[in-house]
Design a protein around this nucleic acid. Structure first.
Length: 218
DNA sequence: GTCCAGGGCCTAC
DNA sequence: GTAGGCCATGGA
């Protein structure tokens, strides 16, 4: 079986098992971006609390975030953990949006994906996963998002090394799948859903797993 | 009490 | 270039 066919096979098995995930749970592209930073190494439940608390103290726009004092911002996002770092990251990110795009996200559609990715990566606190989450889930760019779950699952399936670098794993998908935003969106979400339910850190792939047939081939 | 969560930065070797 | 420490809250 070729890699493209195998990757599609896994996608379809996950889709059949878990159904459409329809990520990302947010009202606006900017809220997706906020969530992408707040969820760094943090459970989504804690992020939701922080978002709710943020919504109480300011408008969820770059200007709204920048209108808060650093202390107020830290307090609002405390539940998402690493609140001092994330407060600084959010402020510098919002300042970037304001300076570069005038705070108007609707004009970001005209910019080149690779160029925007490089800009995002140049910001402190925006690494490859956060940048790609923003590009895919907030800006609808066909960029595959890799996370710890992706490496966990695909290394167990024998498709990458468990110590593989971010871009090596990303290339596995980008080199073998058509660049379709909707499918990349679903695929990543399905991987997360699957791993949360069945792919615990300290457990091997188990019997009854939706991708068991692929495991057997690996 | 221990482990883990939808990472990324910095430092030391 | 890479392994290890650090950041921090909250639920299981």
């Amino acid at each position: 079986m070729t890699k493209p066919a195998l990757l599609i096979d896994i996608y379809e098995l996950l889709l059949k098992a878990y159904g459409e995930q329809s990520w990302w749970p947010a009202d606006t592209p900017f809220e997706v971006m906020l969530g992408a930073i707040l969820t760094q190494n943090t459970s989504w439940a804690n992020v939701e609390k922080a978002m709710a608390s943020l919504r109480e103290v300011c408008e969820l726009t770059p200007e709204g975030i920048l209108s808060l004092t650093p202390d107020r911002l830290e307090e609002a996002i405390r539940s998402s953990g690493y609140f001092r770092q994330k407060s600084a990251r959010l402020r510098s990110f919002c300042q970037f949006l304001k300076d570069r795009y005038g705070g108007d996200l609707s004009c970001m559609g005209g910019y080149d994906t690779g160029e925007m990715r490089a800009e995002l990566l140049s910001l402190k606190g925006i690494g490859p996963e956060t940048a790609d989450s923003i590009l895919l889930y907030a800006l609808d760019r066909p960029v595959f998002v890799v996370d710890a779950y992706t490496v966990r699952l695909f290394s167990r399936l024998g498709l990458c090394d468990e110590k593989a670098k971010y871009h090596d794993v990303q290339d596995l998908f980008m080199d073998n799948l058509e660049p379709e935003t909707g499918m990349f969106n679903e695929y990543h979400a399905l991987i997360v859903t699957h791993c949360k339910q069945r792919c615990a850190k300290r457990a091997p792939c188990c019997e009854g797993c939706p991708v068991e047939s692929v495991c057997a081939r690996a």
